[in-house]
Design a protein around this nucleic acid. Structure first.
Lengths: 227, 227
DNA sequence: TGCTTTACAATAGTATTACTATCATCCGGA
DNA sequence: TCCGGATGATAGTAATACTATTGTAAAGCA
């Protein structure tokens, strides 16, 4: 078994993501909560700590006390998303006897947007999901991946992929590429949703019902591929 | 039929990508050729027009006469790659009678790195491929997608996906998501290669033979999915 | 041949970004 | 009451992403 991810209802985030843990103060919670909203509004490139500081009535310097730079803030948010996704998948697959159904449930979670959960009041999961869809590849498509990986900052993503890959192995032990298939599904679920909104000719996903459509496309793809 | 992409041996690039067509002067060819090498060395974030100017012995201002900004240069390079890939696929699939074999050939091209072609002396395709793998999502995961799309700057990518999707439709007319499947394959082929090098636990692709491995994974995925 | 574009180099300048540093203040706990 | 940590206020720096101006040499043309 991989180790548990849930600490009460709050996710445990490795201290290496931040300079000072943002959940230990109101300012920290604001930085995370409002950071998500501002990233969604401006996009990663136009987002700056100065703008975020102005918005929450603090100073640039104070934000730097929590996060080294905006790249680390995005990495923190993305890692939070991976942990949250793993938590949802654990919930969705416990106490289900049939391996095939367990895999199906996991894939449905994996390809569906995360939704609001009042137990995490400082994070708007729906907005965070849009940020993850539009910005998360910028986190790892970056010169510092190797160093960040060495620091263990991608463990959440790896654990998530491994967990679902294990479900694939249960259903189809002979299949050769379970992890690659899962990372493909994760990234494609984000990308197809992005394309359906911004470059619709790059997908057949229905812009009217992108959620159901994306899930159907990818779940079918996985089951046909591994059988 | 979609329109032809090849102009002699040189690809025709829409004038909207650039301020001044780089293939019309030595300086322009240098900007493109050395730009690829410098992007590969520094990564997109650290790459600047000043550094490129220093490297090729010109000035920042002169580079701005060819490309509006570094984002547009990357878009130009990426679009060149899409056009080149379409060209390769056209070559690989002409005069092949069997639709299934035609699709297989197309997918093999699509998932394989592009390689050096001496007919295009100013571009090192192998380096360009690395740049595309590591940077191309940043082109469309950007606030200006909508505007750029309106300008027609993604037509090459759309045409490429549509062409391969049409091959899927020939083999399996009932399949519902041919375009989504192709864009998934394109992006995943880049991503799996990137992961195999930088985050190997996110893939099963063999770092010793990433090309064959990626192709095998994705070609198999497509055929099982559409059958 | 002279004349005119055009292309490029050289240089300067601006607003913004991504930080870093210093110091004052305030608040809660020992 | 004093102390330490957290924050605010303010400054400052180097780099970035441009824009503008001017001079010059070569290419095109009359």
């Amino acid at each position: 078994m991989t180790q548990p991810v849930i600490d009460q209802v709050r996710l445990h985030m490795d201290p290496r993501f931040h300079v000072k843990d943002p959940v230990t103060s109101d300012l920290g919670l604001s930085i995370v909560g409002q950071g998500i909203l501002l990233l969604d509004e401006l996009g990663y490139e136009a987002f700056t700590f100065r703008k975020l500081a102005d918005r929450i009535g603090t100073t640039e310097a104070s934000i730097y006390r929590y996060f080294k730079n905006k790249h680390r803030l995005l990495l923190y948010l993305t890692a939070w998303y991976w942990n949250w996704m793993e938590y949802r998948i654990v919930l969705a697959t416990t106490n289900i006897g049939d391996a095939s159904i367990r895999l199906r449930r996991a894939l449905e979670e994996l390809t569906r947007p995360i939704s609001r959960d009042d137990r995490v009041p400082h994070i708007d999961e729906e907005v965070l999901y849009r940020v993850v869809v539009a910005e998360s590849p910028k986190v790892y498509l970056h010169r510092e991946v190797t160093e960040e990986n060495r620091e263990g900052l991608y463990l959440g993503y790896k654990r998530l992929c491994r967990r679902v890959a294990d479900l694939i192995r249960e259903v189809s032990p002979a299949y050769l590429y379970p992890v690659a298939l899962v990372s493909t599904v994760v990234e494609s679920s984000h990308l197809q949703r992005y394309f359906s909104e911004h470059l619709p000719r790059l997908t057949d996903v229905d812009p009217q019902r992108p959620d159901a459509s994306t899930t159907e496309f990818l779940v079918e793809m996985v089951f046909r591929t591994i059988m």
